[in-house]
Design a protein around this nucleic acid. Sequence first.
DNA 1: AAAGTGATCATG
DNA 2: ATGATCACTTTG
Length: 169
Amino acid sequence: MRKPELSFYLQDAYEAARAICGKILCVRQADGSVLRRRITETECYMGEEDSACHAHRGRTSRTDVMYRQGGVAYVYLCYGMHNMLNIVTGEEGHPQAVLIRGVEGASGPGRLTKLLGIDRSFNGVSFLDSDRIWLEDDSFKSTLKETPRIGIGYATEEDQKKLWRFVVV
DNA sequence: AAAGTGATCATG
DNA sequence: ATGATCACTTTG
């Protein structure tokens, strides 16, 4: 059981999203215990050129964390009630992230954050240097299915068609 | 099919 | 300051 190194998080979000499928998401709970669930579904958001990406409109206080070096969490609130967990990837200055859409036992980005106790206090927390959240690799080999991303009707048709959602089969 | 819920961002 | 818009979930 090993933790991915920095180089794992410096990959482009497309490669990272594929690699993150099958990894184990580990989250420290308030009582000190750790919840572990295998990641089964991801999507990649590919920077200012990607009309579906929050950073499409440039750097703001909200998107600032996406511009950091890969390996930190980007967590934001959607529809007033759902915390969405992303892993920032790529080099500093490249605003890319991987949305975690499902883990074993919880399908849906809002569901898994609730299950694992992830809220906006995790925004900016490091997967490499913190003991609150990290990934583990147990050498599980996953086969992936590729589909269009969910819930991005505001993006251009071209970007909606991209096969940037990955599901472990 | 539609509401529920609040941060965020573009307007003025 | 105000208002539209959401990387969604649940209920009917």
